[in-house]
Each structure stands twice: as C-alpha cells, then as structure tokens.
Design a protein around this nucleic acid. Structure first.
Lengths: 228, 228
DNA sequence: ATTACTAGGTATCGAGTAC
DNA sequence: TGTACTCGATACCTAGTAA
C-alpha cells in the first residue's frame, strides 16, 4: 500500500503553483499575484493558471481574496502539508529513513487511553502488527517547544496502520504507530486519525512505563524514533 | 529567472515513475517490472504506463532492456538528477538555504584559468554580478573523498549566472558561481557549464589566494558556502 | 487593468489488438 | 505471458471575450 497514490492525484502544475506560493512565503503573509503572472511563471496561459487557482481554492489548499486590483493568495495548512509530504518522500530517497530524538515532559491525559486500548478491535491489531499487546494506557508526552514542529512532521512518516472499526454501536477511529524508544524502553508513538490535542504525543508500550521508569507528571523523558 | 521552469517540463506521472524506480533502488541495480505493474502503481492503464516508460527512455532518463519476460529498468544519472533537483527545491522551502563546509587540498590546474578569466566577456559580468573582478587565475581544490558527493550537489543550488559569449571567432561557455569563503577569504566557487573534471572544484577571488594564504599544492583548505 | 466563461483545436487517455 | 501500435472518446489547452 504505497502512500501518495490513494488520493486522486493533483496536477503537476498545481503542485508547482503551491511550491511557488510557498517560496513567496504565502503561508505566512498573502502573496499578491495576478493569474497572468502565475501563468508566466508556470509557462501556461492566464486562463490555465486561473483554472489551477480555482481548483486549488475549491479543494481548500489556498485562499483567495479578490478585493482590489490583484488577488491575494494565501497558502492554507493542507496546501503546505501536501508539499511537506512531497518533500518527505524525496528526502527519504536521498537521505534514507528519518530519525528523530526529542525531549518532552510527562503530562496527564484524561484517562481515555485505558478504555480505548482495551477494545478487542484494537488489541488484535496491536498483537499482529506491533508484536505485543500494549499496557492499557497511554503515556502522554509534551515535547519541548523547540521540538514541537519537528515532532509534528512525524505524521508524514510511513508507519504501522491500525484500522478503525465499529463495535457496541459506535465507531472507533484508526491510528498510525511509529516504533520508538522512550527512556530507552521500546514501544510506539501512536497518532489517532482524529486527534484531539496538537501539542501532546501518546506513547504505548508492552509494560507500564510510569511505574517501570518511576515517572510522575512533569518529569523529562527522552524519546527516539526512526522511520520504518 | 526562476530555475526549473525553463525546460519543457515533464509530466507528473513520469516524475512519480522516476521516484518509484529510485525507491526500488533502480539507480544501483535494475528493477524488473512489467508496464502493467507500473500502471497499477501509478493508477493508470498499462498503455499509459508504457508510454511514460517510452518517453523517459527516449529522453535518456532511464534505460530499458526487453530481453526476457519482463523488462529491466535502470535509472540513469540524468533521471536521478531530475529527482535531486526536485528534492533540493523542496528542501529549500522547508529547511532554508543550504550550507556546506568541506575540506579539500590544493591542486594544480592546467593554467587555462588565467586565459579564460581575463576575457573581457567574462570580466564585465564578474564585476557586475559578483561585485569584483577576480584575480586572473582559478584555485583548484580537490574535496576529500567523503565530501565529494555533497560537493557535487552544489550544482543544483541557485547561483549567480555567468553567460557564455562569442569572441575572436570562438565561443566561451557559461558558468554558475556560488558565494563562498576559502580559508576565511571571500570569493566564489565557479562551475563551468561544460566542466572537464568531476573531482575538482574551482575557486575565484578578488585577490591572489595562493600568495595571500601561502598555499602550495597538497595543502589542506577549508571551504564554506551558503546558497544565495 | 483584472477574473473567468465559452468555443474549438490538440493532446492524452484507455480499449482493442498485433506481434 | 509480455510490449506497443491504432483508434475513438474525452480531458485540457489557448484564444476570444464578457463582466
């Protein structure tokens, strides 16, 4: 299951346009460009450039405001994500699997992890794909502010899929796992598809790490992970 | 003058195909794939996949041998270069301008540098684009073997163009310059479009560096450069 | 000046099929 | 099995032009 071929693929010109906008810093402040200028840059007509802009805006990759003489173009998060995925794919080719090491502090979750991880629909998949049944509880780690951006890039890495399912009249979402070590102990970073928090990552392991490593809230921990 | 829009642009599917092959290590050993398998991976028909292979082979990006049952596909240097350029463009977006620092040893050239650098067709461009008229001679540096690969990546960096011209009944080729420091002294790495050697880089500077730094053949020197 | 529609020509696709 | 041609359908481009 190759990543990146599932979605109904964008046109190359559209990707080049997103790249161009990103290069102009349109993810931070709007780029003011006419469709003609875009066309010249891409080597296509004003009309074609306009169609690309229309399509990208329709699909939520950029935002346009046609207020004044020219339009203001702003790259949205999903547009930048698309480029980041492209970057990551190519980076892998030339630099090999990504590695990451960061320090974070232990924080308390809502205790939901215990309920979710105990679901048979999940545990059978864990046993099969991770090779163990995790202790029923996630250890939540808040990366230090300088690491947060790098940690968020992990979502683009290839990972082990845990599929969603339905049980007891409700649905349980899927997740992606990445092999990692926390304080030297092996386990996985787990990223639910529908994640609630953006500044915290969840770690699962075969053992009860809080006890094994004598961790309490606020304690610093080292996390290392390598792309599979 | 945006780099990457001059060439008559490849189709995205063709680039994805090159990426796929690179991912299979087809730059080192042939990948054995039918056009149907390629088509499945790209989400297009066998016929379309075949057309892409045909076009890429025609343009020298890959080599096919149709000997046995399936074809053997080998990625050629220009195919990998194309991907490397894509990678570099995206890397710049997310990581900022590239930097490089390497150590090499001083080697003797053929003395041609003196003749070329003295051509008025070049000197006016140097003065205008580099901000100085270089001492008429290049200092040749041979990077240490471990650095050679990284140094060769510099050709993908954005740089200052020096255009070719005709004079005295012959033609002088263009070149690309990258701002750099050699042993702490400012100057430029200069890469002729039609370069003769592959393991040596040439450095130009406002002053006679051999004398200024008391360099003789075989001496080690530090070179630092940052993308403009 | 813009953006963006319509019309008509071209390029590209997949199906069928020859080798 | 393969690769790769021809052919008719369609997707996409540019030009012209409306707003």
């Amino acid at each position: 299951m190759p990543a990146g071929t599932a979605t109904p693929r964008r046109k190359y010109e559209e990707i080049l346009l997103l790249r161009y906008l990103a290069g102009l810093g349109a993810d931070r402040s709007p780029a003011v460009l006419s469709s003609r200028e875009v066309g010249v840059h891409l080597g296509v007509s004003q009309q074609a450039a306009d169609r690309y802009l229309l399509a990208l805006a329709r699909d939520g990759f950029l935002e346009r405001s046609l207020g004044g003489r020219k339009q203001s173009l702003t790259l949205k998060a999903s547009g930048l994500d698309l480029l980041r995925r492209e970057y990551h794919d190519l980076r892998r080719l030339f630099e090999g699997p990504a590695r990451l090491r960061f320090t974070g502090s232990v924080v308390s979750g809502l205790g939901e992890g215990r309920y979710y991880l105990a679901q048979p629909g999940y545990t059978v998949q864990f046993a099969e794909r991770l090779g163990y049944t995790p202790y029923p509880g996630t250890l939540n780690i808040q990366p230090g502010p300088p690491d947060l951006l790098r940690v968020s890039a992990v979502k683009d890495w290839k990972g082990l899929r845990i599929d969603g399912f339905s049980a007891a009249g409700r649905t349980f979402g899927g997740a992606t796992c990445h092999a990692a070590r926390l304080g030297g102990r092996p386990g996985h970073l787990i990223t639910p598809d529908r994640t609630h928090h953006t500044d915290v990552v969840e770690f699962i392991a075969p053992e009860y790490l809080r006890e094994r490593l004598s961790l309490k809230d606020g304690d610093p921990v080292d996390v290392e992970l390598e792309e599979s």
